[in-house]
Amino acid sequence: MTPFLAIRDLRTTFHTRQGVVRAVDGVDLDVMPGECLGVVGESGSGKSVTFLSVLGLVKPPGRIESGQIRFDGRDLARLTPTELRAVRGRDIAMTMQDALTALNPALRVEEQIVETILAHDRLPRLAARSKALDMLRLLGIPDPERRIRDYPHQFSGGMRQRVMIAIALACRPRLLIADEPTTALDVTIQAQVLDLIAAMRRDLGMSVVLISHNLGVVAEHCDRVALMYAGQVVETGPTRAIIDRPRHPYTQGLLRSMPVLSDLDRPLVPIPGQVPSLVDLAPECRFLPRCGQAAPECRREIPLLSMGEAHAARCIRVAA
């Protein structure tokens, strides 16, 4: 199957006074039609910047140095701003982390959804409004005819997240990028919102990229997972394979630091140390200072090494 979105060797840097920050450093990612890809990493691992780059939304001083972003036979990195704007929302939509700040406080929900629809479709206003109501109904917002007249601050956190997803889905995009859709929510509401995204994916036949720092959230809802560390993909593969047979020490460390229901007495082991600064990185494994299995051979650039069934990890131990 040919990938729907194929990112190849993407490099996005931020030129700051401290030096060049390599926020995304040679990332390869594929999203297949209709699949849900989970992208997991800590803050600053480059997961958000990767997808902001896809949409051409990286703000100065950040810029895309090199790489290809093939989507639908086109290279998004080569499109003009106007062409890229037509792709955003229409083909690929992205929801932001915090629904409270990502919704415009001065506009009614109705205006925000309708305006998004009208930005891409030539429709009478009334038709756009009924489409907006359909979207809210689909996302399980009770009494949409009344709630559509409300302002964002009048919604609860979970409802607000649904409103934001409704806006993002209003133009029926073929790819939804959900950036930390559940971070600001209670655990019970988290599950609801994630189930909702899964249902939307089935019903609308779209692909989803779920960006999260929570491997557990991603494991439950995604077909495939990519783990990012310090601007690189360190391990990627089918979710099952990664949970059962993690090969990169970072993935192993993440799994050891998470509680498992079947074995509540197992001690949780944190990963020692911290994420390295992304300025002046040495050409060696980025996880080296925190790795318990480091060897002299790790002091060189490590490529992603495949081990079959689309499972690959950026660790010398894979080849061994």
Binding site: L55, L57, R88, G89, A93, M94, M96, N104, T116
Partner: peptide, 22 residues
């Protein structure tokens, strides 16, 4: 710099739209 402006851009809003409507 507010996130709702970035959210609008992420959904393909034009500069004119962002200035006048957002």
């Amino acid at each position: 710099e507010m996130e709702y402006v970035e959210a609008a851009r992420a959904l393909g809003a034009s500069s004119r739209h962002i200035m006048l409507r957002e």
